[in-house]
Nucleic acid binder design. Structure first.
Length: 874
RNA sequence: GGGUCAUUAACUCAGUUGGUUCAGAGUGUCGCCUUGACAGGGCGGAAGUCAUUGGUUCGAAUCCAAUAUGACCCACCA
C-alpha cells in the first residue's frame, strides 16, 4: 500500500477539497430528501478570517457534514455582508492615504472606489473558509449588495412603509461625528469613563442670587434654553417662575419645574439643552422650550458657539471651563465617573443629535418573535440567553434604519418638492414618478423633478432578511427553493449579535414568511486568549488563523478549537490545543500504518482473543455512538468530539489494536484483519465531521472507493443494540489488566506468572486469554484454596492472587490493612445509613437496594482481605 | 441602577429530574518503560474540606437564601 511514514496534513487537505468540489458534494438542490439548511452569518466582505470565524464556521461545518451523512439534503449557504459603515470607513481611509477626500468625490465616484475595493479584497475570507474545510455550497454564494438582494431590501422597505411601519421622524439620534452618520442604539457601546462634574453658577434675573447647576458637559451650555428644578425642592421654591442668565452667551432662560429632576443628585438643579440630550429633549418638548443646535456634523461648534465656532467639542469644553473659572462662575469641579456612549465602529464619542431619520416601528414586529422563542419554536442554546432576549424584546424601541453613508442600499424615497414632507416611497424611479403624479395631481412631473433621499439603509436592514433573501423568498415568495429550504434548521453565531441580527431575523421571518427563520440558535462564546483577554489587534494576542492551519493542519486546528468550547461560554484559546489535535491526527495516522503493515494470512482461522476483542469493541462503539448522538442533540459538540477522541485513542488504539495485534513476525488472520478494517472505517465515519480531510484520506487508503462512495457522502453509523453483559465483563477484564500491570511495576514480577481466582462461582474462562495476552501472565485459573505466598488485588468483589515470594511481607500487610480499614469504614457508613429508618422508609426502593448491595459487597471484600492477611501472618 | 451567568485538581472544563464503592475528563506534572504503528508514544501514580456561610432533606457539588469575587447584558440620572 505504501502510505508515507509521516502525515502531510496540508497536502491531503488540498487533494480532498478539490475532490469534493469536483464532485459537487457541497452543492444542494431541492429533492425528495429532507433539507438541513444553515445560512452562514455573512462576514464583512473585506474582512479577514479571525479566531471567532474559525470557531463559528468549524461548528457549522461539523453540523452540516453530520447532517449530510445522516441522509439529509445538507445545504450551507455562504456569503458576505457589505458592512456599510465598516467598509465605508476603510475606503475613506484608503482614499485619505492617497490624498483624496470623500467630500471631493461625487457619490458615484466614491461608490466606484468602494466597488473596486470590494472586488480587490472581497471574498478573501471565503477562500480562507475553504482552507478550513468548510463544505459550503459555493454555487449559492451571496453578497448583501447583489442586485437581487438589494431589490429584496428595497421591496421590504416599500412594503413596510405602506403598512405604516416605517416613518420619517425628527428625533434625537446617536450621531457618530467621525463617520458623520447616525447609529442605531445597538451600535453604541457604553463605557465607563473618568470625567468631571462641573458646578456652574447662573445668575437669577432681577436679583443678586445665583443658582448652581451641575453638568458633565459644560460645552453644551451655549445650547441651554432652561434650568430645571424639582417642584418639591424647598431650597428653590422661591425661584419658581423666575428666569436665569446662561453665562457666556448671556441668554435669558426660564426656570422650569419638573419632577424628572433628582433632588439628591449634584446640586438638585439641572441645565437643559434640548438639542443635545435625550432627556433634555423630553423636557424641551414638555415645556415648549427652544432648541438650539450648537454643533456641526463633525462635532465642532457652529455659529451658535460664538467665539468658539469651529472648535472641537472637547477642546471647547476646556476653553469654556477656563472662561468660567476666570469669571468666577465655575463653582467647583469634582471627579465623576459616568458612562459614555461610543460608536462601535469608530470608537468616537457619540453625540445625541436631533435630525430627520427613518425609523421602523418595532413593537408589533417583536411580538411574534418573542413568543416564538418563549414557546420553543425557536430554541436558543444555551438557554440562558432567553432571559436577555425576552427583556430586550419586551422593551424594544424603534429602529433607526437610515445612515448618512453612501455604501449601501439607498433609501427608495423620492422628494418631489422643496419640503421634506413631500415624498413618495417606491421601488423604482418610474414607479415613484407615477405615485408623485397622482399625489400632486400633476401629470407632467418627470424623473428630473424627483430627488432621491441621500441616505442608505443600515446594514442590518439587509442582513435581517438573509435566511429569506438568499433563497429569493422576498421577491418570489412561492419559489421552489424558499419553499424547500425555509425555515432553516440551525444558526450558529455569537451572542454579541443576538439583537443586531438574530432577533431581527426572527422578526423578519414572521413578518415576511409567517414562519421562524431557523429552529435552533447555537450561540458560541467569545474566543479569548489563554489569559482570558479578548482577542484584539491592539493586544496582538490574536493568532494568525491561516498561520495556524499551515502549522498544524486544518483538521488539527478544528479539533483544537472544538476541544475548548462549551456553548455560550467564552473559550480560552490556547495553541497547545491545536498541538493536541495534531497529536490525535498522528495517532490515527499511525493506527492505520499498523493495520497496513500486517501480513495477512487467509489460511489460518480467526484468533480467539481477537474475536473476543472485536465483539467487545463493536458494543463499545455502539454505546459511544449513542452518547455522541445525544451530545449532538444537545449541541454539546466538544463533548461529542471528546467521546470520539477517547473511543479512538483509548478503546480502539490502546485496547483493541493491542488485542488483535499478532505476535512479532506472525501474520494476522484475514477475518480479523477485515473486521478491524471495518471497525476503523466506522471510526472514520464518526470522525469525519470533525476531521474531514484525514478521515477522507484514510477512507480511501483502507479501500478502493468510487466517487459515490466517498466518506463525505457515506452514512453516519446506525445504532444497534448493545450487549451490556459483554461490556461489563470487559471492563472487569481491563481493570484486572491494569492492576496486574501496576503490581508488576512495583514488585518487578516476572512475566508469565500465573494468576488465580479463588471463588468457584466466578467465571474466568471467558476473559482468561485476554488477560493473559495483555497482562503477560501465564494463566488465570480457579484455585480450590488459598495459595501460599501470594500477592493479591481485588476487582469488584473478586480477589485475585499471584504466587510470588515476598521480600517484604510487612509492607504488603500494611497495604492490606489500609485497604481493610477503608473498607470497614465504608461498611460502617453504609450500615449507618441502612439502620436509619427514615432513610429506609423514604428513599426509593432502588436506592435502598443499592445500599444493601454495597453492604454485602463490602462484607465480601473484607472477608477476602482478612483471609489474605491471615495467610501472610502464618 | 436593573438583570443574567459563572466560581469543582496546577490549567481548561464536565458533572443532564438531589441517591451506585467517600467527585470525572483533557492538558500539564511525577515515576518507570520504549530498537516491531506512534517520544507527536506506552504503562502506572499523585493531585480537589466542589468560593464562603446558613437553610431544606434520610441524603446536597446538585435545591433555597445571603455574602464574596469575576464576566457579560440592559438602562436617559445631569
Amino acid at each position: 500500500m505504501g502510505s508515507p511514514e509521516k502525515l502531510n496534513a496540508n497536502q491531503i487537505a488540498e487533494k480532498w477539497y478539490s475532490y469534493w468540489l469536483e464532485h459537487k458534494y457541497f452543492h444542494s438542490q431541492p429533492d425528495e430528501r429532507r433539507p438541513y439548511t444553515i445560512v452562514i452569518p455573512p462576514p464583512n466582505v473585506t474582512g479577514v478570517l479571525h479566531m471567532g470565524h474559525m470557531m463559528n464556521n468549524t461548528l457549522q461545518d461539523v453540523l452540516i457534514r453530520r447532517a449530510r451523512m445522516l441522509g439529509f439534503n445538507a445545504c450551507w449557504v455562504p456569503g458576505t455582508d457589505h458592512a456599510s459603515i465598516a467598509t465605508e470607513a476603510k475606503v475613506v481611509q484608503k482614499l485619505a492615504n492617497e490624498g483624496v477626500k470623500k467630500e471631493d468625490l461625487s457619490r458615484d465616484e466614491f461608490l466606484g472606489h468602494a466597488w473596486q475595493w470590494t472586488d480587490d479584497h472581497g471574498g478573501i475570507i471565503l477562500d480562507q473558509l475553504k482552507k478550513l474545510g468548510c463544505s459550503c455550497d459555493w454555487d449559492r454564494t451571496k453578497f448583501t449588495l447583489d442586485p437581487e438582494m438589494t431589490e429584496s431590501v428595497l421591496q421590504v422597505f416599500v412594503d413596510l412603509y405602506e403598512r405604516g411601519l416605517i416613518y420619517r421622524g425628527y428625533r434625537m439620534v446617536n450621531w457618530d461625528p467621525e463617520a458623520q452618520t447616525t447609529l442605531s442604539d445597538e451600535e453604541v457601546i457604553h463605557e465607563e469613563k473618568q470625567g468631571n462634574l462641573y458646578h456652574i453658577a447662573y445668575r437669577v434675573v432681577g436679583s443678586e442670587e445665583k443658582i448652581t447647576i451641575a453638568t458633565t458637559r459644560p460645552e453644551t451650555l451655549m445650547g441651554d434654553t432652561a434650568v430645571a428644578i424639582h417642584p418639591e425642592d424647598e431650597r428653590f421654591k422661591h425661584l419658581h417662575g423666575k428666569k436665569v442668565i446662561v453665562p457666556i452667551v448671556e441668554r435669558e432662560v426660564p426656570i422650569i419645574i419638573d419632577d424628572y429632576v433628582d433632588i439628591e443628585f449634584g446640586t438638585g438643579c439641572l441645565k437643559v439643552t434640548p438639542a443635545h440630550d435625550e432627556n433634555d429633549k423630553a423636557l424641551g418638548d414638555k415645556h415648549n422650550l427652544a432648541f438650539v443646535d450648537i454643533f456641526n456634523p463633525d462635532g465642532t461648534l457652529n455659529k451658535e458657539g460664538l467665539h468658539l465656532e469651529g472648535k472641537d467639542r472637547f477642546h471647547a469644553r476646556k476653553l469654556i471651563v477656563k472662561e468660567l473659572e476666570k469669571s468666577g462662575e465655575l463653582v467647583s469641579t469634582k471627579p465623576h465617573t459616568h458612562k459614555v456612549g461610543l460608536s462601535e465602529r469608530t470608537k468616537a464619542v457619540v453625540e445625541p443629535r436631533l435630525s430627520d431619520q427613518w425609523f421602523l416601528k418595532m413593537e408589533q414586529l417583536a411580538k411574534p418573535a418573542l413568543s416564538a422563542v418563549e414557546d420553543g419554536t425557536v430554541k436558543l442554546f444555551p438557554k440562558k440567553f432567553m432571559n436577555t432576549y425576552r427583556h430586550w424584546m419586551s422593551n424594544i424601541r424603534d429602529w433607526n434604519i437610515s445612515r448618512q453613508l453612501w455604501w449601501g442600499q439607498q433609501i427608495p424615497a423620492y422628494y418631489y418638492g422643496p419640503d421634506k414632507q413631500d415624498f413618495v416611497v417606491a421601488l423604482t424611479q418610474e414607479k415613484a414618478v407615477e405615485k408623485a403624479r397622482v399625489k400632486t395631481n400633476n401629470p407632467t412631473l418627470s424623473i428630473a423633478d424627483l430627488t432621491q433621499d441621500e441616505d442608505v439603509l443600515d446594514t442590518w436592514f439587509s442582513s435581517w432578511l438573509w435566511p429569506i433573501s438568499v433563497f429569493d423568498g422576498i421577491r418570489n415568495p412561492d419559489n421552489d427553493e424558499v419553499q424547500y429550504y425555509y425555515p432553516t434548521q440551525d444558526l450558529v453565531t455569537g451572542p454579541d449579535i443576538l439583537f443586531f441580527w438574530v432577533a431581527r431575523m426572527i422578526m423578519s421571518g414572521y413578518t415576511f414568511r409567517d414562519a421562524q427563520p431557523f429552529q435552533n440558535v447555537y450561540l458560541t462564546g467569545l474566543v479569548r486568549d489563554n489569559q482570558g483577554r479578548k482577542m484584539s489587534k491592539q493586544l496582538g494576542n490574536s493568532p494568525n488563523a491561516l498561520g495556524l492551519i499551515d502549522k498544524y493542519g486544518a483538521d488539527s486546528v478544528r479539533v483544537g478549537l472544538l476541544l475548548s468550547s462549551a456553548a455560550g461560554n467564552d473559550l480560552l484559546f490556547d495553541e497547545a490545543l491545536c498541538q493536541q489535535g495534531k497529536n490525535f491526527a498522528n495517532k490515527i495516522w499511525n493506527a492505520h500504518r499498523l493495520l497496513q503493515g500486517w501480513e495477512i494470512d487467509d489460511s489460518i482461522s480467526q484468533d480467539s482473543v481477537a474475536k473476543q476483542g472485536i465483539e467487545w469493541y463493536k458494543y463499545k462503539f455502539q454505546k459511544e455512538l449513542t452518547i455522541v448522538n445525544d451530545h449532538f442533540d444537545k449541541y454539546r459538540i466538544s463533548d461529542a468530539l471528546m467521546s470520539i477522541y477517547k473511543l479512538i485513542w483509548d478503546d480502539f488504539c490502546s485496547w483493541l489494536l493491542e488485542l488483535v495485534k499478532p505476535s512479532y513476525g506472525k501474520p494476522i488472520d484475514s477475518q480479523t484483519h477485515a473486521e478491524v478494517v471495518e471497525i476503523f472505517e466506522n471510526n472514520l465515519r464518526l470522525l469525519h465531521p470533525f476531521m474531514p480531510f484525514l478521515s477522507e484520506e484514510l477512507w480511501h487508503v483502507l479501500g478502493t472507493r468510487s466517487a459515490e462512495e466517498a466518506l463525505i457522502v457515506s452514512s453516519w453509523p446506525k445504532s444497534e443494540k448493545v450487549n451490556e453483559n459483554v461490556l461489563r465483563i470487559f471492563s472487569h477484564t481491563m481493570e484486572m489488566v491494569s492492576s496486574i500491570r501496576a503490581i508488576r511495576m512495583q514488585k518487578n514480577i516476572p512475566m508469565k506468572t500465573p494468576l488465580q481466582l479463588i471463588e468457584e462461582t466466578k467465571q474466568v474462562d471467558y476473559y482468561e486469554q485476554v488477560v493473559c495476552k495483555l497482562a503477560s501472565i501465564d494463566s488465570c485459573t480457579v484455585a480450590k484454596e488459598m495459595p501460599e505466598q501470594v500477592l493479591s488485588f481485588r476487582v469488584g468483589t473478586s480477589a485475585y492472587f499471584m504466587p510470588f515470594s515476598l521480600d517484604n511481607p510487612v509492607e504488603e500487610m500494611r497495604k492490606l490493612e489500609e485497604e481493610l480499614s477503608y473498607q470497614k469504614g465504608f461498611l460502617q457508613s453504609v450500615q449507618k445509613k441502612l439502620s436509619n429508618s427514615r432513610f429506609v422508609d423514604n428513599a426509593p426502593e432502588s436506592v435502598v437496594a443499592v445500599e444493601r448491595k454495597k453492604e454485602s459487597d463490602a462484607h465480601e471484600k473484607i472477608k477476602h482481605i482478612e483471609q489474605q492477611l491471615a495467610q501472610l501472618q502464618r
